[in-house]
Computed example of a mutant assay.
Amino acid sequence: MGKHRKLNKGQLRRMRANQQKRLQQVELTQELDDASLGTAEPGVIVSRFGQHAIVAAEGNAEQFRCHIRRSIESLVCGDEVVWRRFSAQAGSQAETGEQGVIEAVQERKSLLSRPDYYDGLKPVAANIDQIFIISSVLPAFSSQIIDRYLVACEDIDITPIIVLNKADLLPEQTTELQAEIEQALQMYEAIGYQVVRVSAKTQGGLDTIQTLLQDRVSIVVGQSGVGKSSLVNALLPEIDADVGAISTNSGLGQHTTTVATRYALPQGGFLIDSPGIREFALWHLDESRVAWCFIDFRPFLGRCKFRDCKHQPQDPGCALQEAAETGELHPLRLYNFHKIIESMASTKPSRAIPRGSKK
């Protein structure tokens, strides 16, 4: 490959002049934009669509479609922002439906992210107080999925609340399945997690959910098909969120919510409906962090005979295995922990480095 020729003085001068001209054009455009904008106002992101977002003005009285400045690197539902309205003279913006510009994002109090195989950690919603983990009798109850969400909640220090939806269908299931679900829910209650049994169809248990939602910012998460949108509709019938059926081919839920959306609650507080996902990956965490996020493991961590203990049945002197044998630790939690660790190794992208890694 040949060497690049050095630019002579004339070429350098012309190149710098062109660069300066482009900078001046950018600055002029910025000045024209500023002239068409009002004063800065606080707001909250209701939902985001590409380079646009819906902003709720202070007091949540009005909502506006706004353009997002390119200087903003990350923006999600629930973010507190500084934005400016277009003036009445900004006709070109009015034609596109834009009503303002988002200028800056305030520091987040919390952030829920979802690991994505192609995009890395993908933020879902910000400034959340509590997370409602929605499970259901159908399409399939899974304590492993619940434990994945619990790990995610503990990792970012947000209060989780476990919700069994479609509880009205439980008596119709086999005796074995009823016992499996009830034992799992009792296990979580014994650990210290709050568990609520509800039915969006019969309205059973919704009063408890309404009380828990009051004056808090909450988000509902869970597998597709567990009835998140049906539950949101039961809590806020005026929004009429799309509801999907269970796939007859796979038995899995079909995605109905496509973007996270924030709704004001009549009793005070806000509820965020998030896109459904069939599995919550945790490959962004290292094994020791996952173990710490199992809160019932914490009294036994660091007490194993060997520092590199993997907590398998064949590992001598494992404190977690001994606790499971004596009944101090539920064996199902230890089983789910190992299934999570196994899945992390198989689903982690080759370029990903788990949080907490020294690499």
Rank of each mutant, 00 (worst) to 15 (best):
V226P: 04
L12W: 10
V163R: 12
E325M: 07
S350R: 12
F270C: 11
S350Y: 09
Q24F: 06
R16N: 10
L75T: 01
Y263D: 06
G251P: 11
T257F: 03
Q130R: 05
G78R: 11
R355K: 13
S230E: 06
T211P: 00
F306I: 12
V198A: 09
Q30I: 01
A345V: 10
F49Q: 06
E103A: 06
V101Q: 06
S47W: 03
E287S: 14
R14I: 11
N60G: 04
G251H: 10
F141S: 01
S92E: 07
C309F: 08
P299R: 14
V151P: 06
L150E: 00
I219Y: 00
K348P: 09
S288Y: 04
V101I: 05
W292V: 14
A56L: 12
M187P: 00
I158F: 00
F294C: 10
D33N: 04
H52N: 13
P139Y: 02
A352R: 08
W292Y: 15
D129K: 03
T256W: 14
S346Y: 06
S71H: 03
G269F: 15
H67S: 11
I277G: 01
R289H: 11
L12K: 15
E95I: 07
E80T: 14
T347P: 05
P237C: 03
F297P: 06
R108W: 13
S250K: 04
G222S: 06
E322M: 11
R22K: 11
V163G: 10
A323I: 12
H4P: 14
L75K: 08
P139W: 03
S74Y: 05
E103D: 11
V220G: 11
Q178Y: 01
L112M: 14
R108H: 11
E322I: 03
D116N: 14
S71C: 05
F280D: 12
R5E: 06
S87Q: 13
K21H: 02
K9N: 13
